[in-house]
Nucleic acid binder design. Structure first.
Lengths: 120, 120, 120, 120
DNA sequence: GTGGTCTAGACCACA
DNA sequence: GTGGTCTAGACCACC
């Protein structure tokens, strides 16, 4: 796992966790690794992990129990909403940017399918 | 024109110019506004505009003639390539991210078309 | 009963007991539930209850008889004083904070009455 | 200025700034001291100030201009709303807590006025 | 053991 | 000069 790109490390970790929650790789109620464990595993300072967790907690996606650890929200609806929210946000942004470049949605729809052919 | 979001202002301006070049709103050989003019127009520090121009010059998309000003490249192929390059880059990034969220290209292709219906 | 907010759980429980003593819901000489019973009832670690009791004992509001359990003080004056102490402390803090915000006591006195109208 | 009490320093500073904004001691558009300046002035680590600023920015009460500094929101309505919000929140909390102790609003209203007599 | 806070000092991008 | 991020290491309260 690299953190080369320009984004802050704590954001990259936070996004990683969000994706895992959205795809169900991490489920409701699951215990997240302790701040220290995750820090050593990712070779990052504990403060950095702590910050990722704090941000996620502000979004009500995880919660902490004092002295017990950090857990994914029990509210499965939040996790479902997360996936949908992340997806539509990305799609809208994509279409907006491509429109600026002069693409219509039909072209995009077709290009994406064709791209599939090339890559597979 | 706001520069509220997280991106550096010089990047936002740079992208704006790129899009104008890609869509033909600015054509090969066109003269760009002087650093100072553009700075006052966008209410931005001249250094910021200067940096945008410098970056574009590094990409051979514009060039400066001392005492004359800054101009878009005469090489029309570069501009055509620009559009294609920007588009494919965005598309690849988009598909990659959506795959992480568990979407297939077929779903994306369909979703984009459906999205069209809702919005039009 | 939730313990979501920022306050330490043992403080919340301690305050709860204090209020019950101040309002007479728990009376002088009453036996308190055992640490273990209260812990299971409130779904909390026994250590936490233990700490609440210890703190109350330091304030001479309760006492323990080895092998018998934990009891509210027999000194009825202490309980009366408790109510007054808690009240004046809260009032002073409140007025201090509201003064910082630029409110006079007259305004507060009036606002509280008006607030009553709205809520009843 | 002491930071003795239990609250995190960054919260205390944050609250201080809020009060100054609510009372108009700091006005819309005002430039706040730089992170470093305020840190040396309050004899606190710059990170701590930074955190206070970050939290206030999340509440849209201040904003930062890259490389320029940190400023109070231009939106005067936000500042007015702040005062009202802080006040009602404190009042409600106060009344709630006093009700638990068995006080009616009429008693509170009277007690606050009487308290005035004592203190002046 | 857990997370939360704070300090000290560093580097970076931005204007 | 500005704020943003990160590391290193420490202390604390809580469970």
């Amino acid at each position: 796992m690299d953190f080369d790109n320009g984004l802050p490390i704590y954001i990259q970790i936070l996004n990683l966790l969000k994706i895992k929650m959205a795809t169900g790789e991490i489920k409701e109620g699951d215990k997240l690794p302790s701040v220290r464990d995750m820090a050593t595993e990712l070779k990052v300072n504990p403060n950095t992990i702590s910050r990722s967790y704090t941000e996620l907690e502000k979004e009500d996606l995880i919660y902490t129990q004092r002295g017990m650890g950090t857990f994914v929200t029990e509210d499965i609806e939040k996790l479902k909403a997360l996936k949908k929210k992340m997806a539509t946000k990305k799609i809208h942004k994509f279409i907006l940017e491509m429109k600026e470049l002069g693409f219509t949605k039909e072209e995009l729809s077709r290009d994406i399918l064709e791209l599939k052919m090339e890559e597979d």
